[in-house]
């Protein structure tokens, strides 16, 4: 497959994924520019999570191109390689390492040599500890440093996972439903946090919560049945007839 040059950081073209005949993604095309924050909305089953799976190498598309930074063909790489390229992912359900302390969770995520032998020779360094401290400040978990991640509240776990994402120092962050199960205050704080992160990194947010998406104030892409049906500002998209039809049902 020849790689087309594109200025986009992430370029999906004509991506199709089917599971036993069901088309989870149907010729989906999407580009995200470097430094952009993009919100992806869509009803259940629209293919949002499948799209994330394709980008991060968990699912291989049947057809189509997925190109990162105009040169890396993501369809030919597995999860580990894609993570190393600089794409980080936060899952819908917060997945942190329950039996590790908050500090160790961040330590495991910190950008470093991932090979087994490096792990054997590893020793605590001051620079790493400072970075962890900084991250704990960003995600407001300073007081919970020694606690087991499993004992955190749902909202705190979401934040810890965002902290882990930052620790990886990715170029592109995929954030799947970051405010699910959060209180209004936490939702607001999360929006602020993501905006702050977006100052340095490209972010793709998948979210159901319209107030949250509105608060982010970024370009919105609406998916339905595995394809893009509308793209634009939140006001443009929410006035689009197809979108209304899809969300409210016929």
């Amino acid at each position: 497959m020849d790689i087309r040059t594109t200025t986009a950081q992430l370029y999906l073209d004509n991506v199709t994924v089917s599971f036993d005949g069901f088309r989870a993604l149907n010729a989906l095309s999407l580009t995200v520019e470097s430094g952009e924050m993009r919100a992806i909305i869509g009803p259940n089953g629209a293919g949002k999570t499948t799209m994330m799976d394709v980008i991060t190498g968990k699912t291989r598309p049947d057809e189509g191109d997925v190109v990162f930074e105009g040169q890396y063909d993501l369809t030919a790489r597995d999860e580990t390689e894609i993570a190393t390229l600089g794409i980080g992912r936060k899952f819908q359900k917060p997945t942190v390492f329950d039996m590790h302390s908050v500090e160790d969770n961040l330590l495991l995520a910190l950008k470093a040599d991932r090979r087994a032998f490096a792990g054997l020779q590893w020793r605590e360094s001051e620079a790493q500890m400072r970075r962890i401290d900084e991250l704990l400040g960003i995600v407001r978990l300073r007081g919970a440093r020694e606690r087991l991640a499993g004992s955190l509240s749902h909202g705190q776990k979401q934040w810890l996972e965002i902290g882990m994402l930052l620790a990886q120092e990715p170029k592109l962050l995929l954030v799947d439903e970051p405010v699910a199960g959060m209180t209004d205050a936490e939702t607001h704080q999360t929006a602020e946090l993501l905006k702050e992160i977006n100052r340095y990194k490209t972010v793709i947010v998948v979210e159901h919560d319209m107030t949250f998406v509105r608060e982010l104030g970024v370009k919105v892409t609406c998916l339905h049945e595995g394809a893009v049906i509308a793209e634009g500002t939140i006001d443009q998209v929410s006035e689009n007839e197809r979108v209304i039809e899809v969300y409210l049902g016929r």
Binding site: D78, T80, A83, T84, T95, F97, L108, R114, A116, W122
Partner: peptide
């Protein structure tokens, strides 16, 4: 007790997550 061991426990508890962090489980 090394970082290698922490990665092992991470693999035990959430293998997919460990892969997405860039570790070759």
């Amino acid at each position: 007790s090394s970082k290698f061991g922490k990665v092992l426990v991470a693999i035990r508890d959430a293998e997919a997550r460990t892969r997405f962090l860039g570790y070759r489980a």
